[in-house]
Design a protein around this nucleic acid. Structure first.
Length: 659
RNA sequence: GCCGGGGUGGCCUAGCGGGUGGGGCGUCAGACUCAUAAUCUGAAGGUCGCGGGUUCGAACCCCGCCCCCGGCACCA
């Protein structure tokens, strides 16, 4: 079998590493270590994703150049990965010369093959800055819901993704001045041409179901062509257009190819072996970027004549203390500041991430559970077994006893090896880990039942045999747990004379050899409850301080005064054709009849609403919904997304003011 | 609303071509003392989300409903 490639989704070099990142990288690292222990020739690459608007904005805000900002986080991630023993063969940057070249080459190839076309679209232009405003440089009004929105997404209102040029009343985010729409030519990737290809591709794609099912559904619906050019200086210049760069989601995955190429130069192989010769390619990613890896990326590769991914392995989301991960609300654990700096062991976090739950499911990180699981499972069961055997050997023999290991022990180890490998190949990392932990448990039971501490007093030979068997289990554990706990297991391996290069699966069928045994130290140490409490407190404080910030967003009476709310009477109510939620209402608000669209249909029958008095917000910007204009908003209670109408306690004249 | 994925003892879960619900952690009780108050043995603990149906028999099959997560959508 030739070379194969494993990659991890590229971290965006815009902020520090958090536990959510590791949810993908640790299992990938474990997977790669297993493949290597099986003798497979793996290339493992990753790198910083460096382009795109957020980095430009963030750099500007901090008075840095994009290069400087990217450099900070590029180093940071490398440092964190090194400390956590996530050992990429190569960690590159999408801003490298290779990646610029490769990206342009691929875009040119797509152009040549007819998969790119240009189209004039209208885009926000700031006359003051004298430039077109890409994506998030624009603020304005959402065309769908009328809320204040960003150029790429209606972040405060309906949450809808906005295509370039869609936003209304655009303003420049940099100087706040009014922007205007100007026509400009942009480039589109003909994704729609790949529908049949993708349907077939996804039928054969390996990996986790969560990735493949999602993608199939997306492809089944209509595929829209992608705008792949942006008005930005920071990025890969669009071929033939020096004033534009390619969209960051084009050059980011191409990084996988570039990093392979860059590493190939160092390691002495040709990147084409992998990217032109249908080598096995496995992408580890988070669930949030499935679309890019299962649809856009293979289409690009196909269109430009490169090898396609063999498997996409998507990890589930991370929750913090059972709440949705959220940096702005404080539900986040920073790997450097909160974990490593506080002196927690990298292997402990690796174990937790692998062993908490199956790879595809959501993983909850709670400090309390972390402390419990490390101490009660990892340290007590595995750590203690390793230590008690080594300690007993050292104290009573001073060396690994001569003699053979019992066949039943060798067979037991072999069964565990087979099961664990099968599970790893199925990306069931937790189950694989459990299987290996069972061996430690088996070891404890064996040790307990054979009572070597009694045997040593009356039958030294029998005792030696028992210990030899236990040492074989120690060896098996050191090897099989090595992918999850590399630094701890290297230490244990050394105790039994197993050098790092001999940590591989073939060694499992080799009997542990004689040699001097030194006094062991603790292979895995417990975590003090106090440290867990401190870490938890720190997290809770952060969450609290974030919510205090929210509280400080109090508004003034003047702000409230801006809202013009009056009582109106519903005079007509009817369903809007084609909508199962929306009603068209006519409301008498005192001398004026307003047409308002409201999402009450799921809860109320239209006829039951007629005659009701309700509060109406009159001076909200009008919006169109399902083609019906809505001038105002009926205020209602929202209970889990369901509306409950408010009405005054007694009849009041229409147009009465609410304040 | 639609499309995925889930709802199994306090927690993480196995079981889903039907035949008396398994495991691990925790809890409780014993045992042991080589070992990091570790380990070993045993026990308690479950209306398998809810309601129907098919069947001699359903966690598993069918129908309806509820809840959680994610995506999409018309979230005024």
């Amino acid at each position: 079998m030739g070379k194969e490639l494993v990659t991890c989704g590229l971290p965006y070099a815009n902020g520090p590493c958090h536990i959510g990142h590791l949810r993908t990288y640790v299992p990938a690292d474990v997977y790669v270590r297993f493949l290597r222990m099986m003798g497979r020739d793996v290339v493992f690459v990753c790198g910083s994703d460096t382009h795109g608007t957020p980095i430009v904005i963030n750099a500007e805000e901090r008075g840095l150049s994009p290069e400087e900002l990217v450099d900070i986080y590029h180093r940071h991630f490398q440092d964190v990965f090194r400390k956590l023993r996530i050992d990429f063969d190569y960690y590159g940057s999408t801003d490298s010369e290779t990646n610029h070249r490769r990206t342009r080459e691929i875009v040119k190839e797509l152009i040549k093959n007819g998969y790119v076309y240009s189209k004039k679209i209208k885009l926000a232009y700031c006359p003051k800055c004298e430039r077109f405003l890409p994506d998030r440089y624009v603020e304005g009004v959402c065309p769908y819901c009328g809320m204040e929105a960003r150029g790429d997404e209606c972040d405060q209102g309906c949450g809808r993704h906005l295509e370039p040029g869609e936003i209304l009343e655009p303003r420049c985010k940099i100087d706040g001045s009014k922007a205007e729409y100007r026509e400009q030519e942009h480039y589109f990737f003909r994704l729609s041409a790949f529908k049949d290809f993708l349907m077939d591709f996804l039928e054969h794609l390996e990996g986790t179901e969560n990735a493949i099912n999602y993608s199939k559904e997306w492809v089944r619906k209509e595929l829209k062509d992608w705008c792949i050019s942006r008005n930005l200086e920071w990025g890969v210049k669009f071929p033939g257009k020096d004033d534009m760069v390619v969209y960051v989601w084009v050059d980011a995955p191409i990084g996988y190819i570039s990093f392979t190429e860059e590493y190939g130069k160092i390691a002495g192989f040709d990147w084409k072996e992998i990217w032109k010769d249908n080598a096995r390619i496995t992408h580890f990613i988070g669930l949030d970027i499935v679309y890019h890896h299962c649809i856009f990326w293979p289409a690009m590769l196909k269109g430009a004549g490169y090898s396609l991914p063999s498997a996409v392995v998507a990890s589930g989301m991370v929750k913090i203390q059972d709440k949705t991960f959220s940096k702005s609300r404080g539900y986040v654990v920073w790997v450097e500041d909160d974990y490593l700096e506080e002196g927690f062991h990298p292997d402990h976090l690796r174990y937790y991430l692998i062993n908490y739950t199956s790879h595809q499911k959501d993983l909850n990180f709670s400090w309390k559970v972390f402390g419990e699981r490390i101490n009660r499972e990892l340290v007590n069961t595995l750590g203690n077994f390793l230590y008690r055997v080594m300690h007993f050997t050292w104290k009573n023999f001073g060396e690994i006893p001569e003699g053979r290991v019992s066949p039943e022990i060798m067979e037991k180890v072999e069964r565990v090896r087979k099961k664990a490998v099968d599970l790893i190949m199925d990306y069931e990392f937790k189950e694989a880990c459990d299987t290996i932990m069972d061996l430690a448990s088996f070891g404890n039971t064996y040790f307990q039942s054979k009572k070597p501490w009694e045997l040593i007093k009356r039958d030294r030979n029998s005792c030696a045999k028992v210990i030899k068997n236990c040492l074989q289990i120690v060896k098996a554990l050191a090897i099989l747990m090595y992918p999850v706990l590399p630094s701890s297991m290297e230490k244990v391996a050394e105790w039994i004379g197993l050098s790092p290069e001999r940590i591989n699966l073939d060694e499992l069928s080799v009997e542990v050899e004689g040699g001097v045994v030194e006094r062991p130290t603790l292979p895995l140490e417990k975590i003090d409850d106090e440290r867990i409490e401190m870490a938890e407190k720190r997290l809770l404080r952060r969450i609290e301080s974030m919510s205090v910030e929210e509280e400080s967003r109090l508004i003034s009476p003047e702000d409230f005064g801006k809202l013009e709310i009056k009582i109106g009477r519903i005079v007509t109510a009817e369903r809007i054709k084609g909508s199962n939620k929306l009603l068209r209402l006519e409301i008498d608000v005192g001398g004026e009849k307003r047409q308002i669209v409201a999402g009450f249909a799921g809860k109320y029958r239209p006829e039951s609403l007629v005659g009701k008095q309700v509060p109406v917000l009159l001076n909200i910007k009008p919006a169109k919904l399902m083609g019906v204009e809505s001038r105002g908003m009926v205020l209602a209670v929202d209970v889990d997304g369901k509306p409950i109408i408010l009405s005054p306690e007694e009849e009041v004249p229409e147009g009465s003011i609410v304040r």
